[in-house]
């Protein structure tokens, strides 16, 4: 099977999520990559060095600059005459484009796969991860999004693939990029962090979140996450949200502070290797999944912990 992997990037850096997607694709067959962007030569270079891949297609064109689904989907649909499957990382960009491609190909997409069980058979989470479905596709082409935490990362170095330009389709003229407000953070990105410290509604306000959670994260070199309640209340921006409808993470250590453990939150972090919970309510559901639980007032326990590390 010939597969095409959509490369996650910001025209400068190759996104980490690509590597797990390459691993998933390699289980199906030969892996080609697509870099669609503008001025994205460095990304194509980096992509060509990923171990074990065939060819890197590059659509370097103004119409691709912001990876608008309206412009990218027809491009990929065109490339599918030569490929049997296309796999996207389940990032917001991947989730935005993939179904549009599937519609153009008249194919039922398979979202958020956790494993490859056969040529056309995959597992995927449903009901916020409370059930795992094994599904088999009968479509001629496969359109897939891949859950990054479920696959090992392919080696970022070691390959030397050919880079080939492909013609972009024209700007569809229906949508335009206006602006982006992207968080700049020195901290590790959530989906690739080895340790995550997450805060919940109990943190009261953004200043308190900053004073309690951030110092601990800094000590541990950890990424910072949050529950929906903390995001909704404005303690931290939306891209911190972990859960069914936020980011799916699986770090080595996940520290949940003042988070009750609603199923929608658990859906985003229960595959973490070790879960540590600090909560003053000994019956909080988070303790049912935590490897190490501390029943305590976070306002005492967390500063104490930070100071002692």
């Amino acid at each position: 099977m010939k597969t095409l992997v959509y490369v996650a990037h910001d025209n400068v850096h190759l996104g980490d999520a690509t590597l797990a997607t390459v691993t998933a694709a390699s289980k199906l067959g030969e892996v080609h990559l697509l870099v669609a962007g503008a001025g994205c030569g460095a990304v194509a270079e980096a992509a060509s060095r990923i171990a074990g891949i065939g060819k890197v297609h590059v659509a370097d064109d103004a119409a691709c600059e912001h990876q608008l689904a309206e412009n990218i989907a027809p491009l990929i649909a065109g490339l599918m005459t030569d490929h049997d499957a296309v796999l996207f990382p389940a990032t917001t960009t991947g989730k935005n484009i993939a179904p549009r491609v599937a519609a153009l190909l008249d194919v039922m997409q398979i979202s958020d796969i956790l494993s490859v069980e056969g040529e056309r058979t995959f597992t995927r989470p449903i009901y916020a991860g409370n059930a795992i479905a094994t599904v088999e596709s009968s479509d001629a082409k496969l359109v897939i999004t891949v859950r990054g935490t479920a696959f090992d990362k392919a080696e970022a170095e070691g390959g030397a693939a050919e880079i080939a330009a492909v013609a972009s389709t024209d700007d569809a003229g229906k949508s335009s990029f206006v602006s982006a407000e992207l968080a700049k953070s020195e901290r590790p990105e959530l989906t690739s962090a080895k340790i995550i410290v997450s805060g919940g509604r109990a943190l009261k306000d953004s200043a308190t979140f900053e004073n309690i959670v951030m110092p601990l994260a800094d000590k541990l070199g950890a990424g910072v996450g949050a529950s929906r309640a903390a995001v909704d209340a404005g303690y931290v921006p939306n891209d911190y949200q972990v859960g069914q409808t936020g980011k799916i993470v699986a770090p080595e250590v996940y520290i949940a502070i003042g988070i009750s453990g609603a199923i929608q939150h658990l859906a985003g972090m229960k595959d973490s290797k070790t879960i540590i919970a600090i909560n003053k309510d000994e019956d909080a559901p988070i303790f049912q999944v935590a490897d190490i639980g501390l029943v305590a007032d976070l306002y005492q326990a967390v500063p104490e912990l930070t100071a002692a590390l």
Binding site: M108, I110, T121, P125, I126, G129, N130, A131, I132, A133, T134, V135, E136, S137, S138, K270, I275, E282, F287, Q288, V289, A290, D291, I292, G293, L294, V295
Partner: peptide
């Protein structure tokens, strides 16, 4: 798509306090 099977995800056991 044909659903071949639906199963429970592996359950995490509560650890220690």
């Amino acid at each position: 798509l044909k659903t071949l099977n639906v199963s429970e995800p592996p359950v995490r056991q509560a650890g220690v306090k």
